[in-house]
Design a protein around this nucleic acid. Sequence first.
DNA 1: TTAAAACTCTAAACCGACATTAGAGTTTTC
DNA 2: GAAAACTCTAATGTCGGTTTAGAGTTTTAA
Lengths: 279, 279
Amino acid sequence: MKNELLSIGEMAKINNISVSTLRLYDEIGLIKPCYTDKESRYRYYNIRQNARLDMIQYMKALGMELKEIKEVLESGDTKLIESILIRRKKQVKEQMANLNLQLAAISRTIESLERYRKSPSIGTITIEYIPHRKIYSMPTSINFYDYGIEVYENELKELKNSIIKHNLPQIYYCNAGTTMKKESFLEGKLESDEIFVLVDDNFPQSDSIKRIESGMYVCIYLDSFDDEPEYAKRLLEYCKENNYKIAGDYICEVLTEFSVFDDEKRGMFLRLQVPVAFR
Amino acid sequence: MKNELLSIGEMAKINNISVSTLRLYDEIGLIKPCYTDKESRYRYYNIRQNARLDMIQYMKALGMELKEIKEVLESGDTKLIESILIRRKKQVKEQMANLNLQLAAISRTIESLERYRKSPSIGTITIEYIPHRKIYSMPTSINFYDYGIEVYENELKELKNSIIKHNLPQIYYCNAGTTMKKESFLEGKLESDEIFVLVDDNFPQSDSIKRIESGMYVCIYLDSFDDEPEYAKRLLEYCKENNYKIAGDYICEVLTEFSVFDDEKRGMFLRLQVPVAFR
DNA sequence: TTAAAACTCTAAACCGACATTAGAGTTTTC
DNA sequence: GAAAACTCTAATGTCGGTTTAGAGTTTTAA
């Protein structure tokens, strides 16, 4: 085999890279053809240049930027590569943590959509066992039942900002809800107590994390916040009629939220629930 | 709290988003301000629009593209979201697998650089225990010792292409090496047998994967392929002088490769090695 | 030798999801 | 009423390429 020159196409082919990428690398000075015809401006490479191209591709595979690769190749400084790689390692770890959260959130969302499709119709009352849950919560500063949706939106924003401020993963910001003290519920008053988002075990521990115990709940389904007062009343009446003993605080839980139908209103699927004791 | 209008800046602030992003979303029709002043063209939002913006941010956090989000919001089709999310889930899993390989490769590279800095000087002969290794290998079709570096480069390319063709992770393409039969080595001939890359346990099983057993090796260090014949000879002589019994095939291993100093030659750190038996 | 096929050239535009900038106009605050 | 703070549009930059158009060059086959 002779010391042949390779055209850009040949060089591209044996290196599994595109011709335009090779031209780009020439342009930014990452790897220059060993010979360029002065007339035709055709680029010609040498098979020995594969070494450099391999190195470039390897560093790219490690996630380094072209600028960094160029710097490293120009300086010939192994300390520089090392510092870049150490930085990159941290980055990759962060990315992986993010992807993990994302994957969990995607799964939750798909499940939530499935549940939505198979859920009972509006107004249905059920008695369900609900496993324990974890919530990230904040006490409400105003009783939004006395005001409109705007106040609720504000409270929700504050909850979200609190998550952001504490550098916690924002991806749980679906499946929100509110609670109300058992006493208020029993009196038929609507008094918000706290606002929350459901989180899972991946969520970092903090003071704002509470556990809602598992148990039997009497539930009613609805699809708009506006109807909450009416449906909460129905729920209470149902419990009284059946002599169920209410064992804890009332929860209004967003099962699915897709404001896809209306620009301004939250398109929702809600479940109001109170724990009941049978003994 | 009144039904106030929010300026773009206020809207941006409460939603932890930039003003320019809000303008972009307006432009592409993802979320339009509920009112635009006809004179000043100032944009004004309503706090109830947070619902839609939240939804957008949530879908973005799930890794959906703006185009997809727009489609979903416009169609109001939960089936569409689901199909997008299922696709996305696969994507995320692939990305995670890639990042895992990348992380391992970065660690290997950092280690390799460290080793390079602490390694014995060129020509040093050592007797080392080397743990077992796994290699992805191909028999050489030409004895490149009889030809130049070009032939070696070609063989290396073929090995790489074989990895690509079989859809195996390319990131192992560092730490290459060659082997030679024990008999050839003993006769002082240089006859390449196979060319390989070192892989780890993450690498998928295949017919081309071989195991090199752990054991005691007599090694010599060098920094250029050109010197291999001479150093291989020294290694053989050393073994003979000390009456070491050569117990297996000769290996030429690239410990560190950084062609950062020279455009055309592989800047390398090599270790020639033969297993020896003491009993 | 010549025509066709295959290749290569430069320069510019495109991708996505924004960020930035310039220069002009508007609203709020003091 | 002035200054500060905000907002507007339109254009440009970011990264790592890919694509395209239109022109020129090299190789292949007849």
